[in-house]
Amino acid sequence: MLDFETYQQLVALYTDYAATVDNNEWDKWPEFFTQHCVYKVQARENYDRGFPLATLSFESKGMLKDRVYGMTETIFHDPYYQRHVVGAPRIVSVDDARIQAEANYAVFRTKPDEMTTVFNVGRYIDTIVRTDSGLKFESRLCVFDSEMIANSLIYPI
């Protein structure tokens, strides 16, 4: 069972994460993760079948920082804004070391001269650990529902 204070910290982790990526605060994004972490964006079809293929797959905080460098310094793309709508986290399990949680998400994308579109919809499957600096993601798996994904997945989900 998760106490109320820890649940509030978990909700803050989810909302602060969404605000950070929505506001393009890319240097802050890796700080939501532990040093040895996993971050994947994977199609539901592959996840459900147990296939390892993921659209994005990073296995350390260093790899997340490399992605930030790539997004900000080397990848050229049409500019766009994204906005996350994240459901309340559902606690799957809790022990002394980890919290397993899931939450539904929808990401909307707006290009400056176009209408807003639904960009990506799915669920987060997370493993969260307590650290001296608060709750951090040890693993964040973004399982998107569509079998197709836009060819311009630049920013984190």
Rank of each mutant, 00 (worst) to 15 (best):
F33N: 00
F33E: 03
F33Q: 03
F33T: 08
F33C: 03
F33G: 01
F33D: 00
T34S: 01
Q35W: 01
Q35S: 07
C37W: 05
C37A: 04
C37Q: 00
V38G: 02
Y39N: 00
Y39E: 05
K40V: 02
K40I: 07
V41D: 04
V41W: 02
V41A: 00
Q42I: 04
Q42W: 01
Q42P: 04
A43M: 07
A43L: 09
R44L: 09
R44T: 07
R44H: 09
E45L: 11
E45W: 09
E45M: 10
E45F: 09
N46M: 01
N46I: 03
N46W: 02
Y47L: 03
Y47I: 00
Y47N: 06
D48S: 02
D48Y: 05
R49N: 10
G50P: 00
F51A: 01
P52S: 06
L53P: 01
A54L: 02
A54T: 03
T55L: 14
T55C: 10
T55P: 01
S57E: 08
F58K: 04
F58Q: 05
E59P: 03
S60N: 08
S60Y: 00
S60P: 00
K61V: 07
K61G: 04
K61Y: 04
K61T: 03
K61H: 05
G62H: 08
G62E: 06
G62L: 08
G62I: 03
M63V: 02
M63C: 01
L64Q: 02
L64G: 06
K65S: 05
K65N: 07
K65P: 01
K65V: 04
D66N: 09
R67M: 07
R67F: 06
V68W: 05
V68E: 00
Y69W: 15
Y69Q: 14
G70M: 08
G70I: 04
G70N: 09
G70Q: 09
G70Y: 06
G70P: 03
M71I: 06
T72I: 12
E73H: 13
E73K: 13
T74R: 13
T74W: 10
I75C: 07
I75L: 11
I75T: 11
I75K: 10
F76N: 13
F76E: 13
F76G: 12
F76P: 10
H77D: 09
H77E: 10
D78G: 14
P79D: 11
Y80N: 15
Y81R: 15
Y81L: 15
Y81D: 15
Q82C: 08
Q82A: 05
R83P: 12
R83F: 14
R83D: 14
R83E: 15
H84V: 09
H84Q: 11
H84Y: 07
V85R: 14
V85H: 13
V86Y: 10
V86Q: 11
G87L: 07
G87F: 06
P89Q: 06
R90P: 07
R90L: 11
R90A: 11
I91P: 12
I91D: 09
I91W: 01
I91Y: 08
S93E: 12
S93R: 12
S93G: 13
V94P: 12
D95L: 10
D96A: 15
A97M: 15
A97L: 15
A97S: 15
R98P: 15
A101Q: 10
E102R: 00
E102F: 01
E102Y: 03
N104F: 06
Y105Q: 08
Y105W: 12
A106I: 13
A106G: 07
V107K: 09
V107F: 08
F108W: 15
F108A: 13
